[in-house]
Design a protein around this nucleic acid. Sequence first.
DNA 1: ATGGGAATGAAAATCATTTTCATTTGTGGT
DNA 2: ACCACAAATGAAAATGATTTTCATTCCCAT
Lengths: 121, 121
Amino acid sequence: MSRSNPRVLSTLERAGGFASAQEIYRLMQREGESIGLTTVYRSLQSLVGDKIVDVLRRDDGEAIYRLCGDAHHHHLVCKSCGDTVEIEGGAIEKWAKVVAEEHGFREVGHTAEIFGLCSKC
Amino acid sequence: MSRSNPRVLSTLERAGGFASAQEIYRLMQREGESIGLTTVYRSLQSLVGDKIVDVLRRDDGEAIYRLCGDAHHHHLVCKSCGDTVEIEGGAIEKWAKVVAEEHGFREVGHTAEIFGLCSKC
DNA sequence: ATGGGAATGAAAATCATTTTCATTTGTGGT
DNA sequence: ACCACAAATGAAAATGATTTTCATTCCCAT
C-alpha cells in the first residue's frame, strides 16, 4: 500500500483546503514541484482512507478533495469569466444541519455553490 | 436543439424513476428497442433542461437521472444507501440571492445538496 | 415531389481516473 | 559498504462515462 506524499497534502492546504486532483497536480507543476499525476491520485486516495480528507463531487462529476474538519466556505462563480469569490455560508450551515436532523440523518455534510454573471460580464 | 425521445423517458419511469444513462441504454437494448447511446444522452440532457428529470452523481461519479416534481428543490442524500429525500430550500434561495447581489452578480442560480447517513444506515 | 431543418447513431474525441509495469529509492541486516 | 527486498514513483496504456462530429435519415410544410 502506498503512503501519502506529504507535498500533496500541503498543496491541498495551500489551495484553500478544496481542490480536484487535476488542480493539485497543475498547481504543483506550476510551482516547479516534480511529481506525477499518478502519485497525486494515490496520495489523495490514501488521505481519504485515513479520513484526513473528504471527497465530494462537482456537478461535472470531477472529484474534489477537502480537508476534513476544515471550516469550509462556498463559492460564488461567474458563469462567463470563471471569476470566483469565496463566501461564508453561516445560513447554509444551520439550514443543512436542521434539515438533516429533521430527517434523522447523521454525519452530515453539504455542498452549495452560487453562480451567475459578475458585474464585469 | 434536439427533443427528448419519449421512449427514453418511458424507460426511465419503468426503471423506478432512477437510472444512469448507460443503464437506460442497456435496458432498452435488452428489451429490443433500437436506439443509440448518443440519443439516450441527448434525451436525458433535454429532459434535465426541461426540468422533467433531475441529475445527481453516484459515488463513482456516474450521473444518475431521476424523475422529480416540478418545484425547485434540493436533496438530502444518504452516503451509504443512496436514499434521497427532496427538501424545500426557502432559506437557501434567499441566501443565494442576497449574497450574489452583494457582489454585483446577475442571473443567479445555485446548487445545494446535503448528504449524510440516514437513520437506517 | 422537394427542400430544409430536426433527429439519429456510429465512430472518434475528450477527460478524469485507474491500472500496469519497469525503474528508482529507501531501509534493514550483514 | 554491500546486498536484498519492500515501498514509492511516474510514464504510458487501459478504462469508462460523456461529448462531439458528421454523414444520413426522417418529417413536414410548401
